[in-house]
């Protein structure tokens, strides 16, 4: 699974971190960092993260 975050849209709400903590995290400056190619077992979490992103900045590419 390939996860793409549009960093021009991202406003660091961090909702994705709650939904999928294995894939998304906030760095020390409060900016989002993520694993671009997480294991497929994490698909449900990542879909949840994409759903709850207020800016809809997360895209899942198979």
């Amino acid at each position: 699974m390939k996860v793409v975050v549009d960093m021009n849209k991202c406003q660091d709400h961090g909702q994705c971190v709650f939904a999928a903590p294995d894939v998304f995290r906030m760095d020390d400056d409060g900016r989002l960092a993520h694993v671009p190619d997480p294991d497929d077992a994490l698909r449900d979490e990542v879909e949840e993260a994409a759903d709850v992103c207020p800016l809809q900045a997360i895209r899942i590419e198979d």
Binding site: D12, G14, V17, F18, M26, D29, G30
Partner: peptide
């Protein structure tokens, strides 16, 4: 405000 309190809020969440 900014990231410091947002991070604190996440802990309380």
């Amino acid at each position: 405000g900014g990231p410091s309190v947002t991070r604190a809020a996440a802990r309380f969440r």
